[in-house]
Amino acid sequence: MDAIKAFFKDQAQHLRKEVWEVARQIGEHPELGYKEFFASEVLSRFLQQHGFEVKRGIAGVETAFLARFSGTRPGPRVAYLAEYDALPEVGHGCGHNLIGAASAGAAVVLSKSLELSGEILVIGCPAEETSGAKVTLVEQGIFKNVDAAIMFHPGSQNVPVISSLALDALEFTFHGRAAHAVAASSFGINALDAVINFFVGINALKKQISPDMKINGIITEGGSVPNIIPERTVARFYLRARKRKDLDELRGKVIRCAEGAASMVSAKMTWQKFEFSYDEMHTNQSLAECFTKNLRELGVNQISPPQTAMGSVDMGNVSWTVPAIHPYLTLGAGNEIPHTRDFAQAALSSDGENLVMLAMQVLAFTGSDVLSDKKLLQQIKREFRLDR
């Protein structure tokens, strides 16, 4: 380990208790997406205390923030992404308290360099568990001129390279005509029949699509009482595919199914997106290799091959805007299942503290490499351009 990274490791040790206190406080005060006022305040205050300039409520998102620390000379811009929203009833069953603390901690560690070139950013990203704010932050230009976006996620394995599924969240409304279900049934147009036809069509479609495409739906409105022909029904669906272009094609097929189902009973159909669309996560290989090298330098040698997460993350949208990584690091022995109370408890245990310490160091090391190694940065950018 060279002298610079040894210095950063020493700084991380000095910050250990302070950063863990940030993670602990957020973990013990879970807040749902877009309501993370306590977590946003804790992270912002910690960064301000260490010399970062913090702007809150960015991109019109009240609990988002942007923290900056400029070096002594111009140079690249590295962004650490902080997540800090919790799950309903479960709390921090995805370990976002660890993500936010580690990203902020890594940024502070890196800021202690006396010869820092460039700029360190920490971008507070609310609501990853629901309608991810990273989509809004991308659209509002928050990632403009960022050279690399870096974060980590707690998991059951050490996986530097991941991909995820692209996601569309669609709501279909079927419009019929109400009538007495017995005395005047011939005057009604049954919107419930339309939505049932829709599900029948979807089940047939599932047999014709690739196994890595997913269609999952529920009926959220199915009528009011049995003796009134339903004039309005609503269904919500998540559609997923490995690639955005494949998902766009799938979306067209699903919409045509809905149109056909409505026409069978002379109903009308409208649709809309009820949550943000996510693109698939595209890991920058050069940046991931740098992260892996630093992980090994910190003594971590159990590293898993690339994996596709069978879910969707708003970091995917970031990864198509700037070079990005979203690696997973093992929480404890890797036995806890995410989105459970057990995982939330593990994230508040000594295992959580140890993981924050590891993540803070490897993120700081990787950010340092991006800021100081011109050849590495050129390689990262070249790869990003060629993969568009």
Rank of each mutant, 00 (worst) to 15 (best):
H153F: 12
S224K: 15
E18Q: 12
Q11A: 12
G27D: 00
Q157F: 12
A309L: 14
A148L: 06
L66T: 01
R240E: 04
M1Q: 13
M269V: 15
E221C: 12
G60A: 11
T63A: 07
T136Y: 04
Y80F: 15
G201H: 07
S349Y: 06
E41P: 10
F38M: 13
K243Y: 11
I202S: 10
P230H: 06
E171D: 08
S350D: 15
L376P: 00
A184P: 08
Q208L: 11
N158W: 07
Q302S: 13
Y84I: 06
K375T: 15
Q285E: 15
H29D: 08
S263D: 14
Q48F: 07
A127E: 01
T136A: 10
S277R: 07
N203Y: 08
L81W: 03
S304Q: 12
E62A: 10
L376W: 05
T233H: 05
I380W: 00
V90F: 09
A191S: 10
K134I: 01
K374I: 13
G332L: 05
H29E: 09
A102H: 03
A347T: 01
Y328K: 09
L358Q: 02
G27P: 02
G223I: 02
R45I: 15
E280F: 02
I4Q: 07
K374Q: 15
D85T: 01
T330A: 08
L192M: 13
V22S: 04
H153E: 10
Q13S: 15
L32V: 09
F7L: 12
P88L: 06
G71I: 02
F365L: 07
T173V: 14
